[in-house]
Amino acid sequence: METQTNSPEKKKGHKQTGPQTEQENLKGTFAAVLIVGGIILLSWFGVFGLFLERA
C-alpha cells in the first residue's frame, strides 16, 4: 500500500525508524536551503533599498 496503516506491528516499525531518520545525513540539504534563504533575503533587501531610495 502507498504509505502506512495503523496496524500494531507497523507502529513498532515506526518506532525503529524514528531515530534512524534523525541520523540521516542532510547537511547538503541544509546548506542548499540556506542558499535559497540567502537569495530571498538579498533580493528582498535589494528591492526594499530601492524603495527607500526612491521615496
Binding site: T21, E22, E24, L26, K27, T29, F30, V33, L34, G37
Partner: peptide
C-alpha cells in the same frame, strides 16, 4: 521533523 528542517 529532522533537526535541520526545524532550524530551517
Amino acid at each position: 521533523l529532522h533537526r535541520f528542517e526545524k532550524i530551517w
